[in-house]
Each structure stands twice: as structure tokens, then as C-alpha cells.
Design a binder for these strands. Structure first.
Length: 479
DNA sequence: TTTTGAGTTGTTCGA
DNA sequence: GTCGAACAACTCAAA
């Protein structure tokens, strides 16, 4: 009986720097497996945009495996039962995977490991998703950090191990083992709303490395300033690739350091450092999710349980559809809907608008992002929304309410971004494109815009709703 | 234990 | 147009 290992792929859809895969390669036979749990009704089951990404990423992984002489076994069903069935069918001796950190995944994997251990299999999990494990970073009191700067300072003291090479070749998978066709997983939508996602992205390990290489050089050197301008390709756009593990943070880390060690380009050092601190925020998000597993649903700051949130549904729908009448917000929400992604600065702008100007619970925003973002990470999504709402780690000062008009003027001064995504305002002059309600009647007329007909009147008055938010925060402050 | 300095990304107002 | 101050008070982390 040949010695057989299963490499259970989850959010590590790559061959390079994949410790679980390399461990499996120590065995005579290697079975690459992906399990799609189509009956998962968890609140955090795969979102719509992520399903589209996953479809193409699985195809890419299968192709990469075939190039090495193997192939991907795709099975559907609940994870534990399906994995056990594959073990039974193949007589596997070992199962390897790279760890996930979502609360539900931790519980599930712990049980699976115990069961397989009991059955006498070798079971090992590895770190493929983070620079450092969440339990490796702690403050002087032995507690998890709740503030980013000291967290990242401490984490930066730890060394980042070098990425592992992909295996040269893989043993063939016996032909009797059946696999679902990726199409059968029904990950693609019935109504073809996913054209934008297909056009914007190249899921898969190759696409991940192309994105990284496109970012190294000029963009990363200008990152400090350009990352704030949504009309420019100033960010790495690596987030969905990292989310699906098509590239790992260690690979990114070492590639950036390799670049900066030789780069003479102005800004290379500073830009790289700023960019790596964003990788640090990703680490921090996982750190927090691991140590505070209730935070996807509950505020970290308990005082916010009594916050007077609004339950209004119409404003929420307007926000989701990019019809708030605030150009920067609408442009961002439409970019999200079309591409499955939103620029980082705009995530803060729209989140601040939802939670502060509309006083809608941050969980509603987190749920929408979960369904529409291709990069929706439970950890990063949770941190981002709680941070903006002011109830999370590194709590934002109460007075930090983004003004979407001011943000537009600062970071999209010519209105390029607004015009791209809100074409009905394209003819407005720069001066008025971020606040059409303030434009003189003749200017609106000349631009062919009638508010309330071609483009909505603003959903709320920014100044008044800001004031209301500050007052609401004062209420919970006083208990 | 107590103290001290600091905390991703902001806005507004008045000089 | 630019600049500094004001905007709560609190919690975190380290000394």
C-alpha cells in the first residue's frame, strides 16, 4: 500500500510557499483536494463576488497542478464528512493543510484534526497565511495588542522566514478518483453581473505575481501619496490574491525587501515601508480576530452595544446602490458593485458615511462588503468597519467623521474618479462635481443635470448629520 | 503601582 | 490659500 498524503487546499490556492503542500510531497502519493461546502448556511459563508473569484482561482490551481503532473480533486459537501470520505476512498495516511483563523474554521479544524488523529492518521497544519502567528505577538504583560503601532513594532522584531519554492513535479493522481467539474459548483451567477470582475482581475497564482511585479518599481515608490488617489493605479490590488492565498505575505515581504535593498528610485524606501505596514494591518486584523473572535458580530468596545443606531432601510439601499446623491460615495459604491473591489480610502469614506452620517449599524455595511468584495476577509473587514465606526481597536477619535465632499476635493481634485463611475455628472465643472447641490442652476443646466431626475438629491445634509453623529457619540460616552 | 506619552487615514474655524 | 488649534476623554503600552 503506497504512502499517501492529502493536501487539503482552502485559502492557500498556490503551489509556491505552500508548507502543507511541501509536507505532502514527502509522501509517495499526493492528493490535492478542494472541498466546496455548498450547504454552508453560516453568516460568513462565501459571498457572491468571492464565488466568482473562487471559480477562476480553482481553475487556475488545477491547471498549475496539471503542469506539474498532478490534478485537483474537487468535492462538494460538508468539510468534515467529505474529507473523511476521501480518506476512506484513498486510504490516505496523512492530511496536511495551512491554517485558517476564522472562529468557525478554528472549531471545525480542531474537530477534524482530533477525529483523524484518533483514526491513526498523521495530521499537520501549517502557517501559510501570515507573517507571524497571532499568538506569537504579545505585549509585555503577555496580552494581545489592541493598538496597531506597538503591535507592528513588536511584530517587526520577529524574523520572517524565507518563502518556500514550489515543488518541481508532483506524482500523478490515480485516474479512478473522481472530481467535480468546477462548473458544477455553480459559483458563477445566473445573471451575468460578473463581467466587471472578469475584466478587472486575473485570479490565480500567476495573476497574483503579475500584480505584485506590476506594483514593484514606480507604483510602490509613489505609494505614500498615490495610494490615496482613487483615480490612479496607486495601490497594489493584491488583496484578493492574498485573501485566497494565491500569494502569501512572506512572498510579498521578501520581494519588497529584495527590491528596496537595491532600489535607487526616489521614494522606494518610504513607499515600501508604508506598503508593508499595510501588510502589517492585515496581520493585526488576524491577530484581533483570533484573540477577540466575537468581533465580526459584536463591537470590541462594549459601550457601543447601546449606541442609538438607525434601522432605516431605504438609506441603506440607496448606499448599496450608489444612489445617495453624494458623488464620492456613489462612485465608490458603484466601483464596488462593478469590480468587486473598492479603493482603500473610499472604503473609509463610504463606511464613515454609512455609520456616521446615516447612523446605520456598521454590521450592515460589513455584510454588504462581505457579499460584494472579492477580497472580503473576515479579519480585515471586521477591523475596518469597527475602526471606522469607532468601536474597534485603535478607536478612532469621536470627531473623525469623513466629509465626502472634502475627501473628494483632496484626493480626486479633478473629479476623474467621480466622472468615471457617475457618468451622469461628467459634464459638471471640477468645482462642482463633488457637491452638485451647491452648483448654480445655470451650471447644472449646462451640464445636463437636474437633481432628483438625472442624479439624486443628497440623502442627508452633511453638516447636520455630522452634528447628529457627534451628539449620538456623546450619549454613549455619558453612559 | 503609578505615571506618562501616544493613539493610520479628519474637519472646521479663525487668524 | 495656508496654518494651528480645538474638538472628550479614554485606553493602551511601557517605563
Amino acid at each position: 500500500m503506497p504512502d499517501t498524503a492529502i493536501i487539503w487546499f482552502r485559502q492557500d490556492l498556490r503551489l509556491a510557499d505552500n508548507p502543507a503542500l511541501l509536507a505532502a510531497c514527502e509522501h509517495e502519493r499526493v492528493l490535492p483536494l478542494y472541498i466546496h461546502d455548498d450547504r454552508n448556511d453560516s453568516r460568513w459563508a462565501l459571498g457572491g463576488a468571492q464565488k466568482v473569484w473562487l471559480h477562476f482561482s480553482l481553475l487556475a490551481l488545477d491547471k498549475a497542478l496539471r503542469d506539474k503532473g498532478s490534478r485537483l480533486l474537487v468535492r462538494t459537501g460538508p468539510h468534515a464528512e467529505t474529507l473523511q470520505a476521501v480518506v476512506d476512498e484513498t486510504g490516505a495516511d496523512a492530511v496536511y493543510w495551512n491554517r485558517q483563523y476564522e472562529p468557525e474554521s478554528i472549531v471545525r479544524d480542531r474537530q477534524i484534526k482530533a477525529d483523524l488523529d484518533d483514526a491513526g492518521l498523521t495530521v499537520k497544519s501549517f502557517n501559510g497565511a501570515l507573517l507571524h502567528e497571532p499568538w506569537q505577538v504579545e505585549n509585555k504583560s503577555g496580552d494581545p495588542y489592541k493598538v496597531f503601532t506597538p503591535f507592528w513594532k513588536a511584530a517587526s522584531q520577529l524574523s520572517v522566514s524565507a518563502p518556500l519554492a514550489a515543488p518541481d513535479a508532483l506524482p500523478a493522481v490515480a485516474s479512478q478518483y473522481g472530481s467535480a467539474n468546477v462548473d458544477e459548483l455553480a459559483l458563477l451567477p445566473d445573471i451575468a453581473w460578473d463581467a466587471g470582475i472578469r475584466e478587472w482581475w486575473q485570479p490565480g497564482e500567476d495573476g497574483a505575481h503579475e500584480a505584485l511585479e506590476a506594483f514593484i518599481g514606480e507604483p510602490i515608490s509613489d505609494y505614500k501619496t498615490d495610494r490615496d488617489k482613487p483615480a490612479r493605479p496607486g495601490t497594489s490590488r493584491l488583496s484578493p490574491h492574498l485573501h485566497f492565498g494565491e500569494i502569501g505575505p512572506r512572498q510579498v515581504w521578501h520581494r519588497v525587501h529584495e527590491y528596496t535593498s537595491r532600489a535607487s528610485r526616489h521614494g522606494a524606501q518610504a513607499g515600501s515601508e508604508t506598503f508593508l505596514s499595510e501588510i502589517g494591518w492585515r496581520e493585526f486584523a488576524y491577530h484581533l480576530l483570533y484573540h477577540f473572535p466575537h468581533t465580526p458580530e459584536q463591537p470590541l468596545d462594549e459601550r457601543f452595544k447601546d449606541f442609538p443606531w438607525s434601522r432605516a432601510r431605504k438609506p441603506l439601499a440607496a448606499w448599496q446602490q450608489g444612489q445617495t446623491g453624494i458623488p464620492m460615495v456613489d462612485a465608490a459604491m458603484r466601483q464596488l458593485w462593478h469590480t468587486g473591489w473598492m479603493h482603500n480610502r473610499l472604503r473609509m469614506v463610504v463606511a464613515s458615511f454609512l455609520t456616521k452620517n446615516l447612523l446605520i449599524p456598521w454590521q450592515k455595511g460589513a455584510e454588504w462588503f462581505w457579499d460584494t468584495l472579492v477580497d472580503a476577509d473576515l479579519a480585515s473587514n471586521t477591523l475596518g468597519w469597527q475602526w471606522t465606526a469607532g468601536c474597534g481597536a485603535d478607536a478612532a477619535p469621536f470627531f473623525r467623521v469623513f466629509n465626502p465632499v472634502r475627501q473628494g476635493e483632496r484626493f480626486d481634485p479633478k473629479g476623474d474618479f467621480v466622472r468615471e463611475w457617475v457618468p451622469e455628472l461628467a459634464e459638471l465643472p471640477d468645482k462642482h462635481v463633488h457637491a452638485p447641490w451647491d452648483a448654480p442652476a445655470d451650471v447644472l443646466k449646462k451640464a445636463g443635470v437636474t437633481l432628483g431626475r438625472d442624479y439624486p438629491e443628497p440623502l442627508v445634509d452633511l453638516k447636520a448629520s455630522r452634528r447628529e453623529a457627534l451628539d449620538a457619540f456623546a450619549i454613549i460616552k455619558n453612559g
